[in-house]
Design a protein around this nucleic acid. Sequence first.
DNA 1: TTCGCTGCAAATCCTTTGCATGATT
DNA 2: AATCATGCAAAGGATTTGCAGCGAA
Lengths: 183, 183
Amino acid sequence: MEQDVFKKMLKEKGLKVTGQRLLVLETMGAHLGEHLTAEEIFELARTKSPEIGLATIYRALQMLVNLHVVRKVSFDDGFARYELSRNLSSERHHHHHAICLGCKTVFSLEEDLLEPLEEKLKERLGFDVTDHEVKLYGYCRVCREKDFRAGLDKAERLFTTDDKLQKGKRTMKIKKKELEESD
Amino acid sequence: MEQDVFKKMLKEKGLKVTGQRLLVLETMGAHLGEHLTAEEIFELARTKSPEIGLATIYRALQMLVNLHVVRKVSFDDGFARYELSRNLSSERHHHHHAICLGCKTVFSLEEDLLEPLEEKLKERLGFDVTDHEVKLYGYCRVCREKDFRAGLDKAERLFTTDDKLQKGKRTMKIKKKELEESD
DNA sequence: TTCGCTGCAAATCCTTTGCATGATT
DNA sequence: AATCATGCAAAGGATTTGCAGCGAA
C-alpha cells in the first residue's frame, strides 16, 4: 500500500509518523480529483478524528507539499487548494486545469503540451523546469448554452464576469481518454 | 496615446476618469514586465501623489482587472501581483511565466503552445477557453551552476526548496526573440 | 528520555469595506 | 446637483505561530 511509502519518506527525513499525518493523506486519497481547501480537509478529517486541529492540517499540508506528495494550487478564490500527486514515487506529474468562469467548475485535464517549450527553455536559457501548472479560463458547454439561450455573446460574458471566483465551487475530473473520446 | 483608449473605456462603462486611476495605469506602464504588488504600486504612485491611499490602489486594480486592462497573477508568495496587458484593445494575451525556485526570479515568456489543447477542449467538451495562465517552476542557469558548484544534485535541490517564495523577488522579462536567439 | 508534534488561541498580514468627504459629470 | 470615487481606519479572513502538554522514537 502507498501508505508504507509515505511512512518510509517520513522516517528518511527524521519526521514522525503520526495519526494526524496519516489521516490527512487518507482523507485526500478519498477525494482524488477534488481540489480541497485546508478547511475542507479539516472538516472531513474531523469526522474521523474530532479532536484534530486546523493548524495541524495546515502543518501537515505544508510538509506534504515539501515532500512533493501533495500539490498546492490556487484558483483565485481566496483559498489555497491541495491535491494529491498521482503517486508518491514519481517526481513529476503533468497537470492542467480548465476553470469555468460561469459555474466555477474546475475540470482537471490530463495532457501535456508543454514539453517542447520546456526543452527550448533548457537549451536556450539553461532553465531547468521541474514542475508546471496550467490554468485555462473559459466557459463550459453548459454555461455557453445557458448564455446562448439568454442571448449573451462572448463579449458580454467577459464584462459581466466577477474577477473573483465564488466559494464552494464544484470540481470535476476529466481523464485524457474522456477528452479524446467524447463526442 | 493609450491613455485615451482607457478614458473612453471608463466613460463607456459610466465610470469616472480620476487622477488616481490614471496614475495607477501610468505607474504600471512605467514598469512593464515587472509583476508588481498592490503595495509596490502604492509606493511608486505615492512618490507622484503622496496623498493617495492603498485602498484606492486596490479598488483601481480591481476595476482594471474587470476591464481586462490588467491581469492579476500569483506566485504563491502571499501577494497578488498585477501586470498590464500588452495593449488595451486586444482581448487575449498569451502569457507564460518561468519561476526560478532558487533565486525566485520570474521570467516572462512570450510563446503560446496551448492552442492545440484549447481547440481540442472546445471540440470535444464544448469548453471555450478565453484566457490561460502557465507557470513553469524550475531552476535558472545561474542557480543550476551555483548548485553544481556546491555539489548539489537535482534531487537534493528539490528537497531543500521552501514551499513558499520569498518576498521582494526580482522579475525579469524575456522576449520570444531572445528565447529563440540566445546562444 | 528526547525531540518533535499537536491543539488551542492569539497574532499576522494581505485585502476589503463603511463612512464621511471630495471630485467628476 | 447627483453620483461616484477617495482616504482613513476598522474589519475580515485565510494562514501562521507561540507555547504547554503529549506522543513517537
